[in-house]
Amino acid sequence: MLTVKTGSAGTEQAGSDGDEPAEPATSSNELLDQLRQEPDWEQLPFFRRLRRIRKARDWSLPQLAGRMVLVGRQHKGRTATASSLKSMISRWENDEIVPDDRNRRLLADALGCQVADLGLTVDPDVIW
Rank of each mutant, 00 (worst) to 15 (best):
S84N: 13
D100W: 07
D125H: 12
D17T: 04
W41D: 11
K86Y: 08
K5R: 11
G119H: 09
Q34A: 09
L118E: 12
M1T: 08
F47S: 15
Q114H: 14
T121F: 01
E30K: 03
T79A: 09
R102L: 15
V126N: 14
L107W: 12
S87K: 04
G15S: 11
S8N: 04
L120A: 12
M88W: 01
P62N: 07
L70E: 14
N103T: 15
L35T: 04
V71N: 04
L32T: 04
V122K: 08
P21Y: 00
L2Q: 04
R51T: 13
R54F: 00
T79R: 05
T3Q: 10
V122D: 10
N94H: 14
L35Q: 05
L61T: 12
P124Q: 14
G66W: 05
A25S: 10
R67Q: 15
R48V: 15
P62Q: 08
Q43G: 15
G77I: 06
V4P: 08
R51V: 12
L120C: 12
P45C: 13
L50Y: 06
Q13N: 06
R57L: 07
V69N: 07
E38W: 02
K5Y: 03
R57F: 01
Q37L: 00
V115T: 09
L31N: 02
I97V: 14
D109E: 03
P45M: 13
Q34W: 00
S28C: 01
A108L: 05
G77F: 02
I89W: 00
D123F: 02
N103E: 15
R73Q: 11
E12C: 00
L50P: 07
Q43I: 08
E38H: 04
A9V: 01
D58N: 06
